[in-house]
């Protein structure tokens, strides 16, 4: 694909009178890994949730895979909301990994991963199972296929969640603080899977507090505060030589 995978223009979003996003313009190139860092309340999670329309934006434009997300441009230039059916076609190409995993607790690890290719992409159960088995092997959980989420550790659950998202063959993966709900000793296994995924050329937008991950894996780091992008650049630039005082303050606090 030519052109960026994600392009946002002047995205604004308020909850009540509280403006969370104050005009975010951002583009993500194919294969790029972007880490968004920033203090809590800076709007980074909200931005991520806007990128697959889990939150509706108040103004601006979001294009994903070259298509306007959530709306259809009419011949007269006005916008019409997409039907749920049309929106879900767009969402199928955007994988999302949540802070709290959100696996389906009544399904085994395998059933969680099979659900998408089987019931949504209609690949047939055998083909879907083959896809799921391979993905669970890739995240190192072949032995846990028949375990329910409640029988897995947090790190294992998050790896299943990554496999579940990948089973839809997305062109973009969104990670919403994927390691924040994990015990410290389980963070590494999830980051390893994400690092390997980055090496395969997957386009990734990762909201994270893991500075080491941002430093070693990200192509670009974005620092957000108070609903705006304060600065962005290579990990070296943003993490080692931040230009803005706000960035310096934040980094000195998390270091």
């Amino acid at each position: 694909m030519t052109g960026p995978i994600v392009q946002t223009q002047a995205v604004r979003k308020s909850f009540g009178t509280n403006e969370i996003l104050k005009g975010i313009s951002l583009s993500v190139e194919p294969g790029e890994v972007i880490c968004i860092i920033g203090p809590s309340g800076s709007g980074k999670t909200t931005l991520l949730r806007c990128l697959n329309q889990l939150e509706k934006i108040d103004s601006g434009r979001i294009h994903v895979n070259g298509e306007l997300l959530g709306y259809i441009e009419q011949p007269d230039g006005s916008l019409m909301e997409r039907s749920y059916e049309s929106l879900r076609q767009q969402r199928q190409r955007i994988g999302m990994v949540f802070q709290r995993f959100n696996l389906f607790p009544h399904m085994t690890a395998l059933e969680n991963v099979v659900e998408g290719p089987w019931r949504i992409k209609k690949q047939g159960k055998a083909a879907a199972t083959a896809v799921a088995t391979e993905l669970l092997a890739k995240v190192g959980l072949s032995e846990r296929e028949n375990h329910y989420p409640g029988q897995l550790s947090g790190g294992q659950q998050q790896r299943v969640a990554i496999a579940r998202a990948l089973a839809m063959e997305p062109s973009l993966m969104l990670f919403d603080e994927p390691t924040s709900a994990l015990d410290p000793e389980l963070v590494g296994e999830v980051l390893t899977v994400m690092k390997r995924l980055a090496q395969t050329g997957m386009t990734m937008v990762v909201v994270t507090h893991e500075m080491e991950f941002a430093k070693t894996v990200a192509d670009r780091v974005i620092f957000m505060a108070d609903g705006v992008i304060v600065e962005q650049g290579t990990p070296q630039e943003v993490l080692q030589n931040p230009v803005h005082q706000r960035t310096r303050d934040f980094l000195s606090r998390v270091a």
Binding site: N52, I94, M96, F98, F104, G116, I120
Partner: peptide
Amino acid sequence: VDPGQREAAEAMGMPRRNIMLRVVLPQ
């Protein structure tokens, strides 16, 4: 049922019917 369940299903692009019948109601 945890609202995160519905969100996860929506984010996968699951049809509404399946969200109800395969994710929300069984729980």
